[in-house]
Each structure stands twice: as C-alpha cells, then as structure tokens.
Design a protein around this nucleic acid. Structure first.
Lengths: 228, 228
DNA sequence: GTCTATAAGAAGATAGAC
DNA sequence: GTCTATCTTCTTATAGAC
C-alpha cells in the first residue's frame, strides 16, 4: 500500500473508468443503446461484462456516464458564454469541424435522439431537456445579437423560429453526413450559416466562398481525407 | 376449399402480412431495429415469433418489407412528379402535416437513419441511397423552378447547397418534434419554408403569418391535439 | 396459417475466487 | 480491480403438430 507510485488510491480506477466510457461511447454510437451489448463494449476495452458492471452497476448507469461525458467534451470544446451574440453562432462552424474529427460523438447523439422517441427509453428525458436547453440558449444569444446591434431587430416568435430552423439544419446536415461521410460537413454548414447571418442583417458575416462542391464526387477531391 | 368466401387463396394471408408490417413498423420506429424483438412485434399483432417467421423467414426480410412499405406510403401521400418547380417544395408542408398524423413513419426513418451509421446495419444501403435520391430530386426541381422563371437563377453548387440545407432543416425539425410533440411541426416548417422561398426570389410564396408560438406552452393552446 | 416445443446462443446481472 | 462461473431471461430460428 505504501509503495504504490500513484498519489491516490483511485487513480488507475478513474483512468480505467474513462477508458470504458470512451469505448462505450463509440460502440453505442455505432449500434445504438439496445445494440451495444456489454460484451461488445467489454471487447473494445479489453474487459468482461462483469468487469464493466463492477464500475457502473447497470448498463443504464453506463449510458448516463456516456451522456455526461458527451456534455463535458462538448463544453470543453465550446465553453458556454465564451462567445455572445453572433459570435455564439459562428463558433458552431468550429463545433462542426470538431464533430468531423470525432464522428462517434454525433453518431451517438443522433442515434439516441431518434431512439428516444420511445418514451420508455432511458435517455428520453436527457434528450428532451437538451433540445429545450439549446433552443432557449440560442434565443438568448440571438437576443444579445439584436441588443448589441449586430443584427436587425426581430420579434420573440421570429427568434425562436430562426433558432429552431438553424439547429434543425445542423442536426439534419449531420444526419446526411453520417449517411455519406464524403459530405464536407463543416464547409457545407459554413456556407449555409453565412446565408442565414446575411439574412439576419449581420454586418460582420464571415466572407466564405461557396465550396467547390458539397460532395467530393471526383476522386481527386478527397473530402473524406479531413476525417481522422 | 370450395366453400371459402374469399376470391383468392392468399387473401387473408396478404391482409395478415400487411398487419404484421404495420406492427413491425411501429415497434421498430420506437425501439430501433436491434431493440425491436420478434416477440415484441408478435405481441403487437397478436402472434408468436414463430408465426412472424413463417411469413418473412428472417427478421432482416421483415425489415426490408417495412422499408418497402415506408416508401409505398410516402409515395401514396406525395406522388412523384405530381408537382414541379416551386410546387414540389411547397407540397412538403402537406407532407409534414401527414407526418404529424402518422408519427411512426418519421420515427422509423429517423431511427433507422441514425442507427444505420453502422456500416454493418442491414438498412445502411437503403438509407444512403434514399438520401442521395432526394437530394438529386430536389436539385432537379430547383433547376425546374429556375427554368420556369419562378425563382432567380443560381449556380449548380448553390442549388445543391440550398437543397441540402432545406432537407436538413426538415429532418432536424422532425427530430425536435419527436423529442417534444408539442412543437407544431407543420406550422413551424411552413414559416421557415416561406422565408427560404422569399430568399430564392419566389414571387408566389404562400402568405403565412408567423404562428402564435412554435411551442404551445399555454394549456389553452393544445397544439398536441392535432395528433391522432 | 398459426400454434407449441425446442434448439443454440446472447443478453444483463450476481457470486465469489484471486 | 478483474476474473471465471453461473443464473435467468431473452434472442432468432427450426421442427412438427393441428
């Protein structure tokens, strides 16, 4: 006991736990919650199903850990209130680029969002709450943009409509992208966001040219190379 | 044999088959392909798993039958080439209203679209092919709209971008709607479509007021009542 | 055409050795 | 902290009675 080099008794345990969450995240993203068995996750991290349950008790607890990790990663990538007004929205281009490098994250979110149409799905409440949170967060930032004079004024109803439309477009593009990874997700979104910002009357809309093609159809334009 | 009243020997068989497909469609939409066991589907239609497999042989064959039925229902609702140019896009408002009355259809499509991010998923090829088909179909109709002088000209790349953005918005709104059915899907989409058509320079964009609120928050505005 | 019975395997979860 | 072994239940699928 006195000879171990780690400073805390739980140090390796914490690391192992993180490895399990990462593996579970990947497998659940690919196969869905129901399709991701503890054996499959265990194989990915080199452990038996019993070993996993020593750490998390139940499969549902593991899902919750995966969701928490997803939130943590997203926040680390895009800290809340790091940008206000229009800057809040332009930062989503970086988020899309981040997603292209970590496909599992968005696969997981979309799979759970769709699966959770079942009211008895363990992630149902989490998904619903998250949708509500990002819409109200978006409306708040759009209001900031108006207050700061970055964009033209609009009604509250119009703001909710615009925010819902923008977030819907992001999710829908991600859905197209996981069906065909040749789609340049970040570039496509960047072009569409520019159109939206221009329509809102943003004066500092980023100057971005229309990408060569949304799909890299020609073999000499390997858009898929951007992925990890 | 000579006494039965049905005209063909397979009449009841065909009806039963249709009932199974309908039940399987509902259960798969709610639980995903992996989560929808033959036992669960059998209970929904009053049959044992063995009975189901008498009709379809394997679970995967049943999924194929469900996908074919999905296509058939969608086509019946919105016949191909029934509207060209801008009319093609405005008809999507009707499609959204239809989806609100038949939630299972869109739940199934979204669940499978997300699940099928796994390359080994049996519906992977079907989902990918469908995404490609509707994008090229949309671009074709947008081109028609330009040719007919309904909207301002735009480049081929821009057309693909606009179509991808519009379809992404539709899928994303549907994702928001299954997470919170209080959202008035058709009205929200109608308002957003009007904005897009106006931007395209459509002269006959439908005159629709912004809905009272995208979410019927007040108890006296039961937006959910529109559902079946 | 649907059933019961059953196979062969995988699922989540528990007990206890080391 | 991870293992093996085991339990119970559930999975898809087959065989054969009615």
């Amino acid at each position: 006991m006195a000879t171990h080099t780690s400073r805390g008794p739980y140090k390796t345990g914490v690391r192992r736990r993180a490895e399990i969450v990462a593996a579970a995240s990947t497998v659940m993203a690919r196969r869905g919650y129901a399709g991701a068995s503890l054996r499959l996750i265990g194989e990915a991290v080199g452990m038996t199903p019993a070993g996993l349950l020593r750490h998390f008790g139940t499969k549902e607890n593991l899902l919750i850990a995966v969701l928490d990790d997803w939130v943590e990663q997203t926040i680390r990538m895009r800290p809340p209130s790091s940008a206000t007004g229009i800057g809040y929205f332009t930062r989503f281009v970086d988020l899309m680029r981040y997603h292209m490098l970590h496909p599992g994250l968005i696969e997981l979110f979309l799979t759970l969002s769709a699966e959770a149409s079942d009211p008895s799905h363990p992630a149902r409440a989490w998904v619903t709450a998250r949708h509500q949170r990002i819409v109200s967060e978006g409306v708040e930032q759009l209001r900031n943009a108006v207050t700061n004079g970055e964009i033209a004024p609009m009604s509250d109803r119009r703001m909710e409509l615009e925010v819902r439309g923008l977030f819907a477009m992001m999710d829908g593009l991600e859905l197209q992208w996981i069906a065909d990874p040749r789609l340049d997700l970040a570039a496509t979104f960047e072009s569409l966001l520019e159109i939206v910002l221009r329509r809102w009357g943003a004066t500092d809309a980023p100057q971005i040219g229309t990408p060569e093609s949304a799909i890299g159809g020609e073999p000499d334009v390997p858009a898929a190379a951007v992925r990890a």
